[in-house]
Simulated scan of single mutants.
Amino acid sequence: MKNVSTRQIIDIVLLIVLLIFIGQNLESVKVKFIAFGFEMPLVILIAIVFFIGYYTAKAFNKNK
């Protein structure tokens, strides 16, 4: 049997937490933006907002 590192245990726990989060946020929500309105699953909306924030922060911190 292979030795399991602490990093692998943390990754497995985070994956389980992520799957629980996804399972609890599958309902659709209505999104209104300027003149547009549409429905999408809440977990997709959260992922989109996360990536926009991540890449925006990355772009503004390029010089550091």
Rank of each mutant, 00 (worst) to 15 (best):
T6E: 15
V43I: 15
V29I: 15
Y55G: 00
L42H: 06
K2S: 13
I44S: 12
K62G: 02
G23P: 00
Q8S: 11
F60Q: 05
I22V: 12
V17T: 06
K64P: 01
G23L: 04
I52R: 04
D11N: 13
F33E: 11
L15H: 15
Y54V: 12
M1S: 07
T56F: 15
L18P: 00
L18H: 10
F38G: 03
T56R: 07
I20Y: 14
F38W: 09
L18N: 12
F50K: 01
S28P: 04
I20F: 08
S28D: 14
E39H: 05
V29A: 02
I44P: 00
G23E: 02
K64E: 10
I46L: 13
L19R: 07
K58D: 10
G23F: 08
I44R: 05
L45P: 00
F51Y: 08
L19G: 03
F38V: 03
N61P: 01
I9R: 12
P41S: 04
N25I: 03
V29Y: 01
I22G: 01
R7Q: 13
K30A: 07
L18E: 05
I52E: 03
A47N: 03
F50L: 12
L14S: 14
N3E: 12
G53M: 04
K58A: 13
I46E: 05
N63L: 10
A47T: 09
I9T: 07
F33Y: 12
T6Y: 15
K2W: 06
F51L: 12
M40E: 02
M40A: 08
T6M: 12
I52V: 13
M40G: 01
G53C: 05
